[in-house]
Design a binder for these strands. Sequence first.
DNA 1: CATATGTCCTGAGAGC
DNA 2: TGCTCTCAGGACATAT
Length: 277
Amino acid sequence: MPELPEVETMRRGLLPIVGRRIRSITTPPCTCRPIVIKPSLRQIAAEMEGEVVQGISRLGKRVLIETAQWALVLQPRMTGLATLSDVPDAGHVRLWIEMRGKPNLKVQFWDQRGLGIVELVARDQILSQLVDDKLGPDALVITAQQFFDRLTVTKRPIKVALLDQKILAGVGNLYASEMLHVAKIDPALPAEQLSVKQSKRLHAAMLDILNTAILYEGSTLSDGTYRNSLNESGGYQNEHRVYDREDKLCPACRKQKIVRIVQAQRSTFYCPRCQAS
DNA sequence: CATATGTCCTGAGAGC
DNA sequence: TGCTCTCAGGACATAT
């Protein structure tokens, strides 16, 4: 479940290919089932092979490999991984992007469940096609005012609203629970009822948690699918306050056990004592 | 239009 | 031991 910190870690790991020319974009032999590649592998290869990588950027939970004209948008979704190093196993590598010249560099897009998506977007259409259409402001860029304005337009529970990538991009199920706990906000609170004060706390908690999690190179959960750019576990899973810690003592009050509830068919973890409405 | 639900997928773990 | 069932959740598609 790569979220912003995990995807940012992937982005940083790909930086060595900036300035390098793409030799080939292929699918590995004997791979399992093909993932979604839009519009097609053939088209992507035709447009990007021979081009120089000008930058690696990130929008929410997507990584963009950019040439002069194009951006190859990688969406890891549940178990996707984009890396220059080794991958957990060779059997789930879905795409190779090989660079020309020395040293040999090859981006491997690995994805155990195969729900990831690779999509070619013209660079001048990123704003219209991605940002306006599908994604709100990135969680690391959104201002406190924008954060408040965009969240308080919906009646949905604040936890559910945080997961809506059109409101803001980058927060997923894990970090949503974590930031609500730090900000001491009830995950069931209708987002429109968020006070200015609560919104400021939540925005600050979000920035703090995401930036710290980036320093730890993300969270590797029990499924072990997420790896940092060296194919090692991340470190932030050891810092989780509530996520996947049902029945464990709340680290803030140390009096109440963490509770798990389900909102919009996703687990939410929180402390009913610290996060009461 | 806003919101809710169904769907994809694989591997781990539970239960019998 | 080996089978079946359930669950994990991002984001898209479809339904209400």
